[in-house]
């Protein structure tokens, strides 16, 4: 059983399609992400990148196709909470943090642990938890802002806080939707470093338009267009593909 699981890819999508009012947002999409792999996804606006993440995280149900996690877990049968608890974390395209809470509390809430109502009600904050949060605060460079309300952070800092919350969740797979949108060049570089570090211990799927950033990541790239895979491989290989140039890069 466990050997079978190890031979299976971490995430496996096959023949997935979904349409909204007749419009095919995802069209016969297949994608495989391995254990410990980082994958970059590029593609024009409306290609279906975010929709693909919606499908993986249970927000949208595919009309057809298979979505499996760790070999045997059928994600199409689970809801968002169940999928999150399997170990899939997600950063939204628009940074989504708890604006009414401090940076610190945002991380406390995300920290891995029993999510039951009563377990949460009676949960105690341990020294180990504190250590872990200090560690994450250092990683996302927000130590000095720990007590700041999340609402008062800059756009880039919110993006980082959201990534920090994912780290606190300790998922096996991170889905990161446009993490460097609205960041300065220096911040973008830092984020690439951060994601590379994160990817050492878990799988990461990054959607991004910023080609410099993708190059910095230096990982396998998948280009989506009109809901299916156009090309896949190294960035150089993908950006040399004629159809990719035509539908995305050339514009």
């Amino acid at each position: 059983m466990s050997t079978m699981q190890e031979n299976q890819p971490l995430l496996y999508l096959d023949g997935v399609s979904v349409s909204f009012d007749g419009f095919k947002a995802i069209n016969n999409l297949s994608l495989v992400v391995d254990h410990g792999e980082m994958r970059a996804i590029i593609g024009p606006n409306g290609a279906g990148k975010t929709t693909m993440m919606d499908i993986i995280t249970g927000k949208t149900r595919p009309d057809t196709g298979e979505v499996f996690f760790e070999g045997e877990k059928d994600l199409t049968q689970l809801d968002e909470t169940q999928i999150a608890n399997l170990g899939i974390g997600r950063k939204f395209q628009k940074p989504t943090v708890f604006e009414g809470h401090s940076v610190y509390d945002n991380l406390v809430l995300a920290l891995k642990g029993d999510r039951g109502v009563f377990a949460t009600l009676f949960s105690r904050f341990s020294a180990k938890d504190r250590e872990r949060i200090e560690e994450i605060l250092a990683t996302i460079r927000l130590q000095s802002r720990a007590q700041t309300l999340a609402a008062d952070l800059s756009h880039g800092q919110k993006q980082w806080l959201e990534i920090g919350m994912l780290l606190a969740q300790d998922p096996k797979l991170l889905l990161v939707d446009e993490p460097v949108a609205g960041m300065t060049d220096a911040e973008t570089e830092e984020t690439a470093k951060l994601l590379r570090r994160i990817a050492k211990t878990r799988s990461v799927v990054v959607v991004e338009h910023d080609m410099g950033f993708i190059r910095d990541l230096g990982v396998k790239v998948t280009c989506l267009a009109e809901g299916s895979v156009l090309a896949e491989g190294s960035l150089d290989h993908v950006s040399a593909d004629e159809r990719v140039i035509l539908s995305y890069l050339g514009r």
Partner: peptide, 10 residues
């Protein structure tokens, strides 16, 4: 603040 975030955190 963000019901969805709560859900996606588990």
């Amino acid at each position: 603040n963000a019901e969805n975030r709560v859900r996606f955190i588990g």
